[in-house]
Amino acid sequence: MTARVTLVRGDLTEQHADALVNAANSSLLGGGGVDGALHRRGGPEILADCRRLRAGPYGKGLPTGQAVATTAGKLAAAHVIHTVGPVWSATDDRSALLASCYRESLRTAAALGARTVAFPAISTGAYRWPMADAARIAVRAVRDALAADPGTVREVRFVLFDETAYRAFEDALAAEG
């Protein structure tokens, strides 16, 4: 069975899914944008899990392009998968790191047995990645990851905060066929 890729215009923190993906900062201790919203709505359990990770294998923080899971606290999900997107650069091609965020998040989701995964548009806020390019990279990375491991994940949902993001992801999905 092929996984579905869907688009939703809305708030990631209101999604019902097995795993919500957090566009985290490397500290894993919360921040602005999606990161801050998930921490606030999910409650202190998420931060407590993140602190345990920092006290253990991620003492120096989570590297860009990698992913790690915690509880989802009070969110309507079983897990939050934290991934650190790259800051966009006009002179340094970091697209492989952005694609890695999606691949590693899906790998983590599959290891957890998650069947539904909801993503934001990683790196498009404070990290300034141009939306159309970020959408193209995200859609291709997700489609490639699902094709390589068609097992566990059954739905990938891109949850997009505004109409501009929604249109960019809609165009990227159409271009990928």
Rank of each mutant, 00 (worst) to 15 (best):
M1S: 13
G42P: 05
A109K: 00
A90M: 12
P57F: 01
R136W: 03
A55Q: 13
P150E: 02
A76E: 09
V34P: 01
D49H: 05
A138R: 02
L47Q: 01
A76G: 01
L97F: 08
A19T: 13
L173G: 05
R4K: 15
E176C: 14
A99F: 07
P120E: 08
T6E: 15
A175W: 07
A114R: 01
S95Y: 00
L75W: 04
V5K: 00
A48Y: 03
K60Q: 15
F161N: 08
G31H: 05
A72R: 01
A17Y: 04
A168G: 10
A48L: 09
R154Y: 03
A111K: 07
T83L: 03
P86H: 04
D162V: 10
T116N: 10
T71D: 04
A172F: 08
S89N: 08
V84C: 09
R136M: 08
G32M: 11
A19Y: 06
Y127W: 04
A90F: 09
G32Y: 07
R41D: 08
G10I: 06
D92V: 14
R107L: 12
E104Q: 15
A109P: 08
I137E: 06
R52S: 14
P57D: 14
G113I: 00
L97R: 07
Y58W: 15
A174N: 10
Y127F: 15
L173D: 06
R94C: 08
R51M: 13
A134D: 04
F119R: 00
T2E: 14
D162N: 15
D171S: 11
L98H: 02
R154D: 14
A168W: 08
I137M: 04
P57H: 08
L106H: 05
R154C: 10
F158H: 12
N22D: 13
P120W: 01
G73I: 11
Q66F: 14
V117F: 02
S26T: 13
V156T: 10
F119P: 00
L20N: 06
A118G: 13
L38F: 02
S26M: 09
V84P: 07
G73L: 09
A118T: 06
D93H: 06
T64I: 15
A126K: 01
R143M: 04
T83Y: 02
C50E: 07
R103M: 10
A99R: 11
L75F: 02
A90T: 09
V8N: 11
P44C: 02
T13W: 01
K60E: 15
L62V: 11
T64G: 12
A172I: 06
R115C: 00
V139A: 02
T124C: 10
P86I: 05
E155I: 06
E163L: 14
